[in-house]
Design a protein around this nucleic acid. Structure first.
Lengths: 183, 183
DNA sequence: TTATTGCGTTTAATTTAATTGTCAATCATG
DNA sequence: CATGATTGACAATTAAATTAAACGCAATAA
């Protein structure tokens, strides 16, 4: 996001010191220093005070901020977002990035023993592929059933009805990709 | 601003409960409850987490929020903003609203004894008028000098060089209007 | 009834933002 | 040079956001 850099930029464009802006906004120079160095995330109320004093609207502030943003490329383990329906306790689907902004949806899937995406068949647009990282999973595609183990993979047209089941007694982890994103 | 109302609206549009959204955003349901009831102003970081989970961009969130905003009409005493140059200690100019958004600039002016806007003449576009609330002030417009007391007023073309001085030993308060705003 | 589940809210404890006061660096001015 | 003023940064304190847990309510099922 880099709120700090953006705030500093527009503040300096207006020729304001931290202290001047602070007094206009009803905050302190110390606060502005911390915000500009990204050492704190200001409350929306505080940021609004600052932007009103400049003045510039919240929408404008974030519009150009988000435009300039370099697209996110790298994701840490904890940054994957859980996207499995909350009802499903047995299956965890952890998605890489925000699929709505991409044509590729990448999932880190965890199937507990007994987990099952059925019995209704999954059908959607696009193609999907995956590779089993650990454990075993039974994959059914258009009537054909296979049990895949670590290192095995699959690739098929998502319009073919399909289903995943963990019929083993250990957790199964699958890494998959799908295009276009289906949810 | 009403961040709370807007957040609740879009959350409910997506059919999410506070708890669901909380787990997606990595916050707690209690926090969302407080935000939606405007009992707290979330940090920008927290709000971003929530909007990313929905998902909707910050710019979008504030764009429609600020569009819907009804223009501010009423101002409390403490909401007047001090606009006199920081160098001037003797003169306080407290402005009603944000002049940049209006064609009318309204000021609540306080002149300490000895206060003087001179010796350089003030000259700018537009017309200005005022009425003395309390105390006395010497007003010079285009060479003509008058001392105005409580109840007296003035109205002139701002392109005429003018100057205000408090030559009495009591504080003088003037209520003035100017169009278009000159600063 | 009597649990049970899911909802939003509230409260006390904790974590974090914001203030206050201070500092060294910078830049004019006499 | 001093000196005074102004700048941004920092440590310690205060204020506020956030958490974690419990609460009350309504809907649903046993």
């Amino acid at each position: 996001m880099n709120i700090g850099q953006r705030l500093r930029k527009i503040r300096e464009e207006r020729g304001l010191s931290q202290r001047e802006l602070a007094s206009l906004a009803g905050l302190t120079n110390g606060t502005i220093s911390l915000i500009e160095k990204n050492k704190t995330s200001p409350s929306v109320a505080s940021l609004k005070s600052l932007l009103d004093a400049i003045p510039i609207s919240m929408a404008e502030f974030f519009a150009t901020l988000e435009d300039q943003e370099t697209p996110k490329v790298f994701y840490r383990k904890h940054e994957f977002t859980e996207v499995s329906p909350s009802s499903e306790e047995q299956v965890s689907l952890r998605q890489l990035g925000n699929a709505e902004k991409h044509t590729l949806q990448v999932l880190y899937e965890t199937y507990q023993p007994g987990a099952d995406t059925g019995p209704e068949w999954i059908v959607h647009e696009g193609e999907e592929a995956g590779i089993v990282i650990s454990g075993e999973v039974e994959v059914t595609v258009d009537g054909t059933v296979e049990v895949l183990a670590a290192g095995d993979g699959y690739l098929f047209d998502s319009r073919l009805p399909h289903r995943f089941r963990n019929i083993s007694d250990t957790v199964c982890v699958v890494f998959s990709a799908c295009t276009p994103p289906s949810f």
